[in-house]
Design a protein around this nucleic acid. Structure first.
Length: 807
DNA sequence: AAACATGGCCTTTTT
DNA sequence: GGCCATGTTT
């Protein structure tokens, strides 16, 4: 007899039911991709509330993105209605901001602290690196930033680092100085960076056990999604929250009976899949999930393996790929919906070719009735968007890039935000300094340093130094400009943060923003500019004002600080608007947790996925494989795997090789429209690239040959690959040497290896005939031969892949 | 102080 | 091929 009403368990398979119904201190749900874990989580929460086992306010659910949080809240509300109000469903970062805002005053911050995004942190570290002349010790801004972030994720601060660092190494000393100054500056600015939000909350709980207790009493059921991607600080936070509450009554008042714990630990449910762990670079520690049973003795483990998302063909490919990671618990996704369509493979000659194929397929699918919003294009690196965008614009494919160059990273938006921060948190000197000369007020670096010096000597903030321009000893023009800025900031403050604790109207953020942008002359300066880009900047700012107005509508009691917090914590995946009829473009990382009918995974090449840089990192290649696996398993109906034979990077063309991961997919599963082998042995499709050199049939590019167009679908057999042997699809657990694998894509790729050519050499080209090498330039995959052909003129050829031989 | 020119360096992924 | 830092000119 079930504990829960039937409608919460209807249509669930046995392990899903168990995951919803189990009650105990700790539960680990190992949820394969598409196995219905969100459903399980929401039904579990709904069950707790419906059964009166918990009040909504006793539930804390942590998700990976704000969007996932909103979705989860909505689904719980659908199940049990308004009874769900009072739950905390949010990301780690949002939850911590909420806690820190109420407790900040205990440890030297105020409620109106601001949040530094990575750009802000970078700017501050850049200044400190310069100040400490750290570059002469080989310290770069990004290395310092990465190290500080890593240390904070491990809950180290400058003091604990100092205790274990090797102080005889001058580089370590300089790093420590910068780390220490960084912390001090952040504190002075009343600001936290992303990593602080988690780490400082942990420190707060450890320093003030009675504060921790109030949250422990409150949250009786804690649920964490995507547990495989938690880092140590997040793990510690969960540990702090799930400790039993001990008696803290002073000793002299204690009776012996009161020494016992007064309240059990909260119950903890975590959901994750180690095969989808893709954030090790950000400090995610896979051991958090793999050692969960050790950390929480007596924990129950439930495995969800049945997949409700994808076709069997897609799952077989995914299983085959991930099976090559050796140190994992074996787990196989399966479905009962049938094989579905084959996976489609395509190799373009260039990244533009690849993009054109995708655009054409999107067109064809659209004509067949597939909505744009059900199609997504994934890539490994953000730089790959360039070619896709060019071709999509030309082909009139509507698209949206999720999280690329983010709206909030644009200079004009950061400026507008700095104005708001200067009002909300005047201690944030970085923000005040940023707006000091924006728009141009004739205040340069020298004046800025003067003001900072005066502020330091008087021991006041930079903002307060602006209040008395006369005392700065500047000329009348500068003093006037500063007085004007000072008055404007005061006026905006009165509007957005009325004195006497009066609650400002919801519209005050948008009004204040408009006031600042107009009265500062910022918008006027842009409108007067002759730089054509400034027109777009004005539009962006207008859009930002609309964002502020929307905020007033959706969050009627939201303050300026709430607005800034929202803006600071938006994630790439949060932007996705399901109703919009456009194709979504995003990185493989951003794709995690999402699903689409049709998925294009692009740039499936060595050096890109697995990324070149990952090769030397411990666990790097395995993480890349998981990333590829995440991409594949996003697809419901149709999966495309595409790549290019040549790819331009840093303005230089180089030869690309098919990714090793392609070979891990059984050959029978992929229907190649154009194999890597087709492209240069037969000429492939004509290069339709924007930048393709003229000449006959697109053959003029690097290494290209005849202008014959590719001839549509081919079966594996027609290009000499034997069909998959009996039983081969099932034996993918053990790693094999790539050469033995049936899907020998790379064997079909022309690879001249280290063919060395020198000026003066004679060569023969499959299409251009014989010629003489004039010069050789470039390195490695980018080696280019400049060849003067006897009849075909001069051509530049990529030596690695061009159909040539030395005579 | 601002506008313009040149050269190095780069890109892995993000809350 | 583009961004950013630095140097040069007005």
């Amino acid at each position: 007899m079930s504990l829960l009403s039937n409608d919460l368990l209807a249509g669930m398979n046995p392990p899903q039911r168990e995951a919803v119904e189990y009650r105990g201190p700790a539960l680990l749900i190992v949820a394969g991709a598409g196995s219905g874990k969100t459903r399980v989580l929401t039904h579990r929460i709904a069950g707790l509330i419906q059964n009166r086992e918990a009040w909504p306010s006793q539930i804390l659910a942590i998700t990976f993105t704000n969007k996932a949080a909103a979705e989860m809240r909505e689904r719980v509300e659908q199940l049990i209605g308004q009874a769900s109000r009072g739950m905390w469903i949010s990301t780690f970062h949002s939850a911590c901001v909420r806690i820190l805002r109420s407790e900040a005053e205990r440890f030297g911050f105020t409620k109106s602290f601001t949040i530094y995004d990575s750009g802000d942190s970078k700017a501050l570290i850049k200044r400190l690196v310069k100040q400490h002349e750290a570059d002469s010790y080989g310290l770069t801004v990004s290395s310092v930033m990465g190290r500080i972030s890593k240390l904070k994720n491990e809950l180290a601060d400058a003091e604990s680092f100092a205790r274990q660092a090797n102080m005889s190494d001058p580089v370590e000393r300089v790093f420590l100085e910068i780390f220490g100054s960084y912390q001090r500056e952040m504190r002075r600015a009343n600001a936290f960076d992303f990593d602080d939000l988690i780490a400082q909350t942990v420190f707060l709980f450890r320093a003030f056990p009675e504060v921790a207790d109030t949250y422990r009493r409150r949250f009786r059921h804690i649920l964490v999604d995507e547990y495989q991607d938690t880092n140590h600080a997040q793990y510690a936070l969960i540990h702090e929250l799930t400790r039993p509450i001990e008696d803290r009554i002073p000793a002299h008042e204690q009776s012996p009976a009161m020494l016992l714990p007064v309240m059990d630990a909260a119950s903890l449910t975590v959901v994750g899949d180690s095969d989808q762990s893709i954030y090790a670079f950000r400090g995610a520690d896979i051991r958090n999930i793999s050692e969960f049973e050790r950390d929480f003795p007596g924990a129950k483990v439930v495995l969800l393996e049945q997949n409700y998302r994808s076709t069997q063909n897609i799952l077989s490919a995914a299983n085959a790929v991930i099976g090559n990671n050796f140190d994992r618990k074996d787990k196989k996704l399966w479905t009962d919906v049938g094989d579905g369509e084959p996976i489609i493979g395509f190799t373009g000659y260039s990244q533009h070719d690849e993009a054109q194929f995708i655009a054409d397929e999107i067109d064809a699918l659209r004509a067949k009735g597939v909505a744009y919003s059900e199609m997504a294009v994934f890539y490994r690196t953000n730089s790959q968007t360039r070619a896709l965008e060019e071709i999509f614009i030309r082909s009139a494919v509507p698209y949206k890039i999720m999280g690329g160059t983010k709206f909030y990273e644009r200079a004009e938006i950061k400026d507008a935000l700095a104005y708001l921060v200067a009002v909300a948190n005047p201690a944030d000197t970085m923000a005040v300094r940023r707006i000091l000369n924006r728009p141009r007020r004739g205040i340069g670096a020298v004046t800025e340093t003067t003001i900072q010096g005066i502020a330091d000597r008087a021991d006041i903030t930079f903002r307060d130094a602006l209040r008395d321009p006369a005392a700065l000893g500047l000329g009348p023009k500068l003093s006037g400009a500063i007085a004007q800025l000072d008055a404007l900031l005061d006026e905006a403050t009165a509007l957005m943060i009325p004195p006497g604790g009066e609650v400002p109207p919801a519209s005050s953020v948008a009004d204040g923003l408009s006031l600042l942008l107009n009265k500062s002359g910022y918008l006027d300066a842009l409108r007067a500019s002759r730089d054509p880009q400034d027109e777009a900047r004005v539009e962006n700012l207008e859009e930002f004002v609309v964002v502020a107005k929307d905020f007033a509508r959706t969050t009627p009691d939201g303050t300026l600080i709430d607005f800034l917090t929202d803006v600071a914590l938006v994630a790439a995946a949060d932007e996705i608007d399901d109703s919009s009829g456009v194709v979504s473009l995003m990185t493989l990382h951003t794709a995690k947790g999402l699903e689409f009918d049709t998925v294009f995974v692009t740039g499936v090449e060595e050096e890109l996925i697995p990324h070149r840089i990952s090769a030397n990192e411990p666990g790097g290649p395995a993480e890349e494989r998981r990333l590829f696996y995440v991409g594949i398993t996003r697809a419901r109906q149709r999966l495309y795997l595409t790549l290019a034979m040549t790819r331009a990077q840093f303005g230089e063309v180089s030869a690309a090789m098919p990714s090793r991961f392609l070979q891990e997919i059984p050959v029978g599963l992929i229907d190649w429209r154009q194999t890597p082998g087709d492209v240069n042995s037969r000429g492939g499709t004509r290069s339709r690239a924007l930048n393709s050199r003229g000449g006959s049939g697109g053959s003029g590019g690097y290494g290209g040959s005849g202008g014959r167009a590719g001839s549509g679908s081919r079966t594996g057999e027609s290009w000499g690959i034997r069909p998959l042997p009996e039983g081969a699809s099932a034996n993918l657990g053990a790693p094999r040497r790539t050469g033995e694998f049936p899907n020998r894509i790379t064997a079909k790729v022309r690879d001249n290896g280290d063919l060395t050519l020198e000026p003066g050499d004679r060569i023969r080209h499959d299409d251009f005939g014989e010629g003489r090498v004039d010069a050789v330039t470039g390195e490695g995959a980018k080696r280019v031969a400049h060849v003067r052909f006897d009849t075909a003129g001069t051509k530049k050829l990529l030596i690695k892949i061009a159909p040539i031989a030395k005579i």
